[in-house]
Design a protein around this nucleic acid. Structure first.
Lengths: 270, 270
DNA sequence: CCATTAAGTATCGCATTGCAATACACTTGT
DNA sequence: ACAAGTGTATTGCAATGCGATACTTAATGG
């Protein structure tokens, strides 16, 4: 019904069977999920109207779907403010993901061990096209930021994890990803120049891990190593982040590089 | 199409509008989500057949839906083992929930402050009928268990959080919930006798918080206070959990009770 | 206090589209 | 080589989703 959006659903999924070519092969389920996804683009409860316009689905249809979603607990009414919000039942699927995703499962004990030894913040993020999606977080002693940001996304091009992953791709692939990226600065120090980025990636390729200085958050230094699948393709990254107030870049790197390499390798092997 | 399941979707949602009465008012979206929910009942990748039988949806329909869900990223193929697993895109909705749920949002800073003062594990769980669903977790110094168990569920009847919530209901309501509960022991110390449970609830009602000794996990002591909505109805609980190796029950209670009461009250007020 | 706008809800009929049935391609084990 | 079990593709009928429409509250404002 909304051809552009249907097309967009299918981009960047070259591994799908042939019928993919036909946009209409995405059934009404697509519209329904698009309704649920309307919440991605807001930070306050939504009315039916708003959901309809954001998702590009007709008002009536939205009303039916929201009704159903509400009956199932995927959508709730906001008690105070008037409008709808995502419902509790969503977390059931979150748990399914965490329990069943092979990388997350295999990484869990390794991350714990890594945190035990490093005593800094450890993250696991999964690669999704131009972004990394955080799937697990082990907090360090004092957490400053939002509690548990499972599902948070960071750009591939300006994070240690992104560099670590790009380092395991061919130059052509990495290039393509970098140029497709929306390279806007996160901090004043964020590197956006492709030449410079490629230098960082080359460094990462050589060392087996990447280090990012204040690329995404001022005052933070991060290190990451990529996790590979059975075909030696990168699928995820383990991050270790610390405060520049406590570590000099040299110490930081020297201290943790062996640990993180070891951790990533442990998770990678079949 | 599967009347029994459709009915079940609508139970325990008395706040829904009238058309609820008609099971068929749950459209095919219901079937689709049931397909996604098939993963709730497994701990390994599923084949189409298995999804079909678990969800009670026809093989063909499952294939179509899984195809669509895969195109959108809600389902992935397991790389090694043959079968399907929940996909990354689910985490997008997790984040939406965390960003938009009023209780989670309002509680976040309070939880951080509470952890800063208590230096023990802090959880926020939301009440969903007979269970509590964990929505946020702040880890303590050494985490033993699974990393981030957002979405994990614990029974209402045998947790400090559950007691805290039951304490804010009428006796009749609490009774109904307790009798409906599947009261099987989690640990040898888990209380299953309704009389005893009601005593615990009465204690909680009096003190304003509940304490549970090894009810769900041996060696763990937990304390919780309920979060109320605008109508003074409980909707969530803040938990504080620690090891019995480090605390005597008396010290534990004395130390943390004022903190947790204060925290819960802060989140509760409009 | 009535007019007005906007939100949520419900109804209905047509044609869209989802689904059962079916067949095929591919892998695996006997 | 066959059988059993995967995933995939096609097709036609009728179930059902959706647009159009109208009703009910609730909130705003003259």
């Amino acid at each position: 019904m909304s051809p552009k959006f249907l097309r967009s659903l299918q981009s960047n999924r070259p591994d799908l069977p042939e019928a993919e070519k036909d946009p209409l092969y995405v059934q009404s389920l697509g519209r329904a999920m698009q309704v649920l996804s309307a919440f991605h683009q807001t930070d306050k409860p939504l009315t039916l109207q708003e959901i309809a316009t954001i998702s590009g689905v007709g008002r009536s249809a939205v009303q039916r779907m929201v009704f159903t979603l509400r009956a199932m607990g995927y959508v709730d009414r906001d008690p105070d403010d008037r409008g709808y919000v995502p419902g509790l039942r969503i977390l059931d699927h979150t748990l399914d993901f965490q329990r069943l995703n092979p990388v997350v499962v295999k990484a869990a004990p390794v991350l714990l061990e890594l945190r035990r030894m490093a005593r800094e913040r450890i993250d696991l993020s999964l690669w999704d096209d131009l972004r990394l999606v955080y799937a697990s977080r082990l907090q360090s002693k004092r957490e400053i930021l939002s509690s548990t940001l499972i599902g948070h996304k960071v750009p591939l091009f300006c994070t240690s994890g992104g560099w670590a992953i790009l380092a395991h791709l061919t130059d052509a692939e990495a290039d393509a990803l970098l140029t497709r990226s929306d390279r806007t600065q996160c901090t004043p120090k964020t590197i956006t120049d492709i030449k410079q980025l490629k230098r960082e990636i080359a460094k990462a390729r050589e060392k087996g891990y990447a280090v990012a200085h204040e690329q995404i958050l001022s005052g933070e230094i991060a290190m990451a190593a990529a996790i590979l699948d059975a075909n030696r393709r990168p699928v995820a990254a383990i991050h270790l982040a610390a405060s520049l107030a406590e570590w000099s870049p040299e110490e930081f790197e020297k201290q943790f590089a062996p640990l993180i390499i070891q951790a990533a390798r442990t998770v990678s092997r079949a």
